[in-house]
Design a protein around this nucleic acid. Structure first.
Length: 568
RNA sequence: CGGGCCGUAGCGCAGCUUGGUUAGCGCGCUUGACUGGGGGUCAAGAGGUCCCGGGUUCAAAUCCCGGCGGCCCGACCA
């Protein structure tokens, strides 16, 4: 490939809308162009990287026994109505009507489609297990697209789905995919961490894990133990709280104190001259048919996912002002004592609490000296806290640390979540119809491209690992001497025979500085310089992009291959 | 959906406060010359619905109203 034939222009400055390194560098290097929020055109080098990542995924999926298919992007509403996700997906689902007013959507994921196909293609237990997968575009009308390729409204995903006869089979499929994922990330030059996670919109009944690439630009926060391998998304993390909420003997019964206008934990603790942790927050939620109170220490956050799980996976909504008015509850002064007709969940760290402060259920008043178990009788003691750095690990005596990362994959044991409502079943050995036991395995292909750049760049540009680089070698031609031109041709041809992509930058009238700048920005793993020193001495200069190391080598294909072998 | 900021040439920006020649600058692009190992120099050019609509005014990029689009933080989410 001649540098002059690439479709695209490198930019010296990144557009203002780009903030994170991968977005800036991918745009500057002419890998991608923004069309509108969250939608990108892939230019030639970008598309090559995307294909390289896809190919690694394909090889590992095939090696793991998965089989590649291709499912439609445009799907009829009926399919989605069967699982309730036509409504459930809400505004994130792109909806379209055809000429006769039938509803369609652009697929945000493909569980419905693959499950619908399974019944006809996998009728017998003899057909199982089966793991179809595809590499296909997904469409989600995100509330906030951001970070270039990190969160797009259109993005490329590898999605695999496993169908098994029973839970044991699912566990095996799950582990097969998990191991394949580890190999894929490694081959892409990423150093991901597998963590426990929330299942979210995909749902499911069993295990689910996220693969996270640690990076400051990542959107996910996770906690990790400093001494064992426990790691979990903050949404799902379990932790042990070290500090005690026992504030000693207090009065023999709660005391009503005047706290005019003090609504927040901060305000109340200032008015009463106590630490925020001596307070307990009582938050009220509604779920169909009842009101729920959730109580946590004043210095801690409530984890709404944990609350939802404690309530049988119903989604609790915070009470609004009208609800408070209707129920006659004093907003800002809610407390557990005397709260009638609500289901009360109290975080288990408060089990041994004594002498704490709560709302009095009366405007401008709080109660001090409250003792859970004596003054209030919770319906349930449960874990309701968002894990914090410094908390103790649930598995060992280590401490949890917090970090940010990019979610580059998410795998789920679904069980029968989709196969039951869609009546997808096979015939077992005894002739009975059974729902498939299903798993699904998402891998963000375009997001991985961005993640690789997040992790592999410097102030000059991208540093692609060889495995995914758009081209592995750039021959920078700085002389129009016949010898220089012909060695560049020879190298390109020779490398291409080996399947090694090579760009020859022989653009006329372009200064050496521009060529070097582009080569560094685009991030070819190896640069080979053919200039006046070659004309004079017959030696080539090679530069390893990652280390910046330069050396002189013989002007032979073998010497260049050897130099390339020294690149990451 | 809440808070903040922003829309002027392909990209980055100035001009707007205080309305008034032909709307400017850098990069990039075109042509020519020089140059030729880290974004080089000189000269000449091309390129604009000043986001859209309405209003005020003799006169609007500039002031007012409404809309659309974008970015960031939060909420939410693979």
């Amino acid at each position: 490939m001649r540098a002059g034939n690439l479709f695209g222009q490198t930019l010296r400055e990144a557009p203002t809308d780009a903030e994170i390194p991968s977005h800036k560098l991918l745009v500057r290097g002419a890998f991608i162009r923004r069309v509108t929020a969250g939608i990108y055109a892939w230019l030639q080098p970008g598309y090559r990287v995307l294909r390289n990542v896809s190919q690694i995924v394909r090889e590992e999926m095939d090696a793991a026994g998965a089989v590649e298919v291709l499912l439609p992007l445009l799907q009829p509403a009926e399919l989605w109505q069967r699982t309730g996700r036509w409504e459930g997906y809400g505004p994130v689902l792109y909806r379209i009507k055809d000429r006769s007013d039938r509803d369609f959507c652009l697929a945000p994921t493909h569980e419905e489609m693959i499950t619908w196909l399974a019944s006809t293609e996998l009728p017998s237990y003899k057909d199982l297990p089966s793991i179809p997968y595809q590499i296909q575009w997904k469409f989600r009308d995100e509330p906030r697209a951001r970070g270039g390729l990190l969160r797009g409204r259109e993005f490329l995903m590898k999605d695999a789905y496993s169908f098994d006869v029973d839970e044991e089979g699912l566990a095996r499929s799950y582990e097969t995919m998990r191991d394949a994922y580890k190999r894929i990330y490694e081959r892409c030059g990423l150093d991901t961490r597998m963590i426990e996670a929330e299942a979210g919109m995909i749902g499911g009944e069993g295990r689910n894990h996220e693969f996270i690439q640690p990076a400051p630009s990542g959107e996910d926060t996770f906690v990790a133990c400093d001494s064992c391998d426990y790691a979990a998304n903050t949404e799902a993390a379990v932790s042990r709280v070290e500090s005690s909420y026992d504030f000693g003997d207090g009065p023999s019964e709660p005391q009503r104190v005047h706290t005019p206008g003090a609504v927040t934990v901060q305000q109340v603790s200032e008015v009463l001259g106590v630490e925020p942790r001596q307070l307990a927050k009582t938050l009220l939620f509604k779920i169909p048919g009842r009101i729920v109170a959730a109580m946590v220490p004043g210095d801690r956050e409530l984890n709404e996912y944990k609350l939802a799980h404690a309530l049988g996976d119903l989604e609790p909504g915070l009470l609004n002002d009208d609800d408070f008015k209707r129920l006659g509850i004093a907003k800002g002064f809610t407390g557990p004592v005397g709260l009638e007709g609500v289901h009360m969940l109290v975080d288990h760290t408060l089990k041994d609490a004594r002498n704490i402060v709560t709302g009095a259920n009366e405007s401008d008043f709080h109660l001090t000296g409250v003792v859970p178990g004596r003054d209030i009788e919770p319906d349930e003691w449960v874990d309701l806290l968002v894990a914090q750095p410094g908390d103790l690990c649930p598995r060992c005596d280590g401490r949890l640390e917090m970090a940010r990362g990019i979610e580059v994959g998410h795998i789920f044991e679904l069980g029968t979540k989709y196969t039951k409502p869609m009546e997808a079943s096979f015939t077992d050995a005894s002739g009975q119809r059974q729902p498939y036991i299903m798993g699904c395995y998402g891998f963000g292909v375009s997001r991985v491209v961005a993640s690789i750049v997040e992790v592999n760049h410097d102030e000059r540009g991208i540093i692609w690992p060889r495995s995914v680089a758009p081209y592995q070698v750039c021959v920078v031609v700085l002389s129009d001497d016949d010898k220089a031109v012909s060695i560049a041709d020879d190298l390109e041809r020779g490398l291409e025979v080996d399947g090694i992509g090579c760009v020859v930058d022989d653009r006329a009238g372009v200064s050496a500085g521009v060529k070097f700048g582009d080569a560094d920005l685009i991030g070819y793993p190896l640069q080979v310089v053919v200039g006046k020193s070659f004309v004079a001495s017959g030696k080539l200069e090679v530069k390893v992009r990652a280390s910046g190391e330069r050396s002189e080598v013989e002007a032979t294909l073998d010497a260049v291959r050897t130099a390339l072998g020294g690149c990451p």
